[in-house]
Design a protein around this nucleic acid. Sequence first.
DNA 1: CTTTATTGATTGAACGTTCAATAAAAAACT
DNA 2: AGTTTTTTATTGAACGTTCAATCAATAAAG
Lengths: 210, 210
Amino acid sequence: MPKVGMEPIRRQQLIKATMAAIDEVGLADATVARIARHAGVSAGIISHYFGGKDGLLEATMRQILSDLGEAVAACRRKLRNDTPRARLEAIIEGNFDRSQVTDPVAKTWLAFWASSMHKPRLARLQQVNDRRLYSNLCAQFRRLMPLDEARLASRTLAAVIDGLWLRGALTPEGLDAEGARRAALATLDRLLAASDSVAASDSATAIDAR
Amino acid sequence: MPKVGMEPIRRQQLIKATMAAIDEVGLADATVARIARHAGVSAGIISHYFGGKDGLLEATMRQILSDLGEAVAACRRKLRNDTPRARLEAIIEGNFDRSQVTDPVAKTWLAFWASSMHKPRLARLQQVNDRRLYSNLCAQFRRLMPLDEARLASRTLAAVIDGLWLRGALTPEGLDAEGARRAALATLDRLLAASDSVAASDSATAIDAR
DNA sequence: CTTTATTGATTGAACGTTCAATAAAAAACT
DNA sequence: AGTTTTTTATTGAACGTTCAATCAATAAAG
């Protein structure tokens, strides 16, 4: 059934199949044969479109990261009032929307997280994403509190978000997106409450990112 | 140089070598040959003492979990005053002491975390450990706040601890144990501050654990 | 008839496990 | 005290399996 213009279709198909395979048997047992079977195509097609298994894995991680970025951006666009607090809430919403917070995505995410420790190409993707999250958080907190405090708050909130994903991916019942969202928002409340009571006498114009 | 009573020595040696190999090249490339080389022994010895590679990996995870439990218990024993707050602080200290918070331990920890998603034997170990942490946290928070709040606080603090480990394992500079400890303690401060101001008019005797 | 898309058997490398052989220590014996 | 026997510890080559990548063959579409 070969037609012209199959490339984007097959690429999407194979990326989705990769997540399905990782969800099913884990990254270690996600062979090209298994992924291809999930997509209903032959194994050889993977090298044809992605240059090899590694290319497919990298493309899959890119897909997840870009979906995440997209979800956060969408939440920010929906904002009516542009307070720092609203921005921070939007970041949280975006991180627990993530296109869909499905089991395949969460498990693939964690698998790549571990894998990126020793694959430079994945590590770079991972790091860019991390820094972006941290910068975004820090820029907003910075408008509400001194720099040192803002850094600590950013670090804490980032850890909570990642920790909730991690625990969600591992729990047998799957990630409870709604509960996680609430927990993250409650943490934000506490982080802001501390500085609210002190003072808002701060003319912070410079934005900082690490 | 075969002597009698080598078993416990070799087991320790091989478990340590496993962590070193995972630190070096990741779980996926930690072959029996490489692990054996790290320990300065032959590959065959692994099957002899652990029944196979899987046995060695399980033993290594057990070692890490037991070291963690030991560190937490040690911190609790050192307590002079037995307030809930002191207990919670001890749990945090223990989690960021972890025998030694070294790079090999952190990376091995995360590798097993990911791996346990699809290996039932590892998943069981993982889950027992998680529940213990959560129960311990919840039991202490329960003495200071209503049940619902205590559950949320436990979930949050557990997520922060795991999140800090996760981010520490991934960051190129390695886990900053001291900074992580401070961040976790600051989070605890905030979690307790919220309830402190409300009331301490609670005669909570029943301890709860999920 | 050329181009694009796809297949699937084949290949070569890498891996975990096995096991006969070996070597040192301990025990038994003279 | 010296010699043999048994036990324990260890090796590393061989085996069978699995996997990713390759590529000649095929087939539909242009």
